[in-house]
């Protein structure tokens, strides 16, 4: 019995150590942190170069990609704001698919963010002023999860209202290939 307490505390400590890596993934910041607003302001509206030119992707990390809660909020907003109307559940339709590794306007968080906020030619409307910045960042995180760019324990599982053949958590990891070419022409 003498060792019982030592072992108890020891294993408690070890378990904590092992799990501490994943802990911020559970953070739930309900009130928008000023940081996310700051991120917004640094992003330039990218001047578009149709024709396969590579734009330097602004390297801004999206804090929400570390939070399972934020990604799931993004997922909810993706449906509620009717992104599914054009992009379906990532498979594409009127708009391009989001589950593959082709990113017409870049696959970095900042690229996607400005795609949402400023819109893109051929149908993608600009949402600046409509979607608050933090919600847009949540959507960005979700969009990136669709092609397996997020850690598996952050990406959402299957939906409760539609058949999710392959939930983002089970999507094989892909690398964004950046701007891949001219925007598709509408048929």
């Amino acid at each position: 019995m003498r060792y019982a307490h030592a072992i108890f505390l020891g294993s408690m400590f070890l378990t904590c150590l092992l799990l501490i890596l994943g802990c911020q993934r559970e953070e739930r910041n309900f009130r928008q942190s000023p940081a996310s607003a700051a991120v917004v302001n640094t992003i330039q509206v990218s001047d578009l170069h149709p024709g396969g030119q590579q734009v330097a992707s602004p390297t801004i990390s999206n804090q929400y990609e570390e939070s399972a809660y934020a990604v799931s909020q993004g997922k909810q907003l993706f449906e509620q704001f009717n992104c599914v109307g054009c992009h379906a559940n990532g498979g594409g339709g009127i708009g391009p698919p989001l589950m593959d590794n082709q990113w017409i306007y870049g696959g970095e968080p900042a690229n996607i963010f400005s795609t949402i906020m400023e819109g893109r030619p051929n149908g993608m409307p600009a949402w600046r002023g409509r979607i608050p910045a933090n919600q847009a960042w949540e959507i960005v995180a979700y969009v990136r999860s669709l092609s397996g760019l997020l850690a598996k324990d952050v990406a959402p599982g299957r939906s409760d209202h539609m058949s999710g053949k392959r939930p983002p958590a089970n999507t094989p990891r892909q690398t964004p290939t950046g701007i891949t070419g001219a925007p598709e022409q509408k048929q």
């Binding site: 408690m12 799990l19 299957r158």
Partner: peptide
């Protein structure tokens, strides 16, 4: 309990009724 201390404490009740505890409404681990 390590889960609770690391903010991964279960939060859907000791009964964890679906769909609240399902993948859609309970993100994370």
């Amino acid at each position: 309990w390590a889960g609770l201390l690391l903010n991964t404490g279960a939060d859907r009740g000791w009964f964890a009724y679906v769909t609240l505890s399902g993948p859609d409404y309970s993100p994370g681990k």
